[in-house]
């Protein structure tokens, strides 16, 4: 079986790397929040930290669900952005 000609712009690779980069950024954000939660020991901060950790997991899975030239299923994309929004909302709760 002959391989298809390589795409000159390496778009699929760039997109795969963009998902990894996003997962990594989410993980760093989640770790920062977990560290804060461990020190502050308040419920809203723990909630934000757990939400961020969940967002990291969802982003990782979404990045795995996508195909070479097609985005992941829409619910995965909605959750990726939605859980980030939820984390931001929880970060607005007073103790943080």
């Amino acid at each position: 079986m002959s391989r298809p000609p390589r795409e000159p712009g390496l778009q699929p690779e760039r997109t795969r790397l963009a998902w990894r980069r996003t997962t990594l950024t989410q993980a760093v954000g989640a770790l920062l929040l977990l560290h804060t939660a461990a020190e502050a020991a308040s419920a809203p901060v723990w909630a934000a930290a757990c939400c961020a950790a969940l967002a990291t997991g969802v982003t990782f899975v979404a990045g795995r669900l996508r195909r070479e030239t097609a985005p992941p299923p829409r619910p995965a994309m909605v959750l990726t952005a939605g859980l980030t929004a939820a984390t931001a909302l929880l970060c607005l709760v007073p103790p943080l």
């Binding site: 795409e7 778009q11 963009a18 989410q26 760093v28 954000g29 920062l32 985005p71």
Partner: peptide, 26 residues
């Protein structure tokens, strides 16, 4: 499909911008 992929990367860039701002806030 390259347009679809570029759009997907733009979406991810916005998500990363949001997460970074959140990290800055914390």
């Amino acid at each position: 499909y390259r347009f679809t992929l570029a759009n997907e990367r733009t979406f991810l860039a916005w998500v990363r911008t949001g997460v970074s701002l959140l990290a800055a806030a914390v």
